[in-house]
Write a protein that binds this DNA or RNA. Structure first.
Lengths: 146, 146
DNA sequence: CCTAATGTCTCTAGCAACTATAGCTTCAAG
DNA sequence: CTTGAAGCTATAGTTGCTAGAGACATTAGG
């Protein structure tokens, strides 16, 4: 049995984050020691590793919640898990496309800057006027994290 | 003079967002009509367009605050603006690198899924075990939005 | 066995950048 | 003159944590 600190160390997750995951029901309530400290066994360790890994891949906690509940029912079809992963892939692809456009625009901006005064600064100028942009980098959908 | 609704429409920014920008001091306090409604002139319109455009390019509000104060002093060197833009470019590049790794991993995951039951699901399996991954996609620094 | 240092506990508040809600007032059209 | 849209303020919620306060638990050294 591991204390929360050891568990966090093992999984690469900070202690308050583990407590937070428990609080929002992503991890079950931990067993407690005589002195009321949380104790974790191998199952909890695996579950946390799963969460960590999915977070690293950019899945939201909501998606992870769904994936975890799927993984708890090994006899069911994996279509749902597949769909979640595909949605995440699509999300990542769309972010990639957008970031690529941003990169292009920022590069143009930085390269064109001759280093004079603000009055002639391309950075400020381009920011002031979208029509100076080569690509259409406008905010497409809502985007969060990662 | 535009009302807040018209301004938002013109700039592609939602009304509450404009009020929020005013609240955090990114936009100056607007003039008011006799009936206490906000009224905006061309300067405010340009400032909001600048903000919107910079947000679209992924700059944080803090960076935008700096860029705006730079653009208010046209006689100064543009080195600072250049540095902000370069930092943003670096940020975008690092996010791109990470997202590219994520995409690779998610594709592998999705392609390998044979569509059977959860028990044999590659998606779940890979999430359970990082050593099944081809790339090192571990969370490098902190990352936000965009 | 005692003490000091570290670890853990709960609870609350804060971060970015908004978005949503409630309950009110003002404005423009018919 | 009335109705409905748009505006006002203020507060709370979103996501995924992170930081802090103040109290208890555990462990290592002397």
């Amino acid at each position: 049995m591991l204390t929360i600190g050891k568990l966090g160390e093992a999984a690469g997750v900070k202690v308050p984050t583990i407590r937070y995951y428990e609080q929002i029901g992503l991890l079950p309530e931990a067993e407690r020691s005589a002195g009321n400290q949380r104790l974790y066994g191998r199952k909890a360790q695996e579950r946390l590793a799963f969460i960590r890994h999915a977070r690293d891949l950019g899945f939201t906690l909501e998606a992870i919640r769904d994936l975890l509940s799927l993984s708890d029912r090994p006899d069911q079809s994996c279509a749902a898990a597949d769909a979640i992963a595909k949605a995440q892939l699509a999300e990542v692809e769309s972010r990639l496309a957008r970031l690529t456009a941003l990169k292009t625009e920022l590069e143009r901006m930085v390269v064109q800057c001759a280093g004079g005064s603000i009055a002639d600064c391309r950075v400020i100028e381009v920011l002031s006027d979208h029509s100076l942009c080569a690509t259409d980098h406008r905010h497409p959908e809502s985007e969060v994290q990662s």
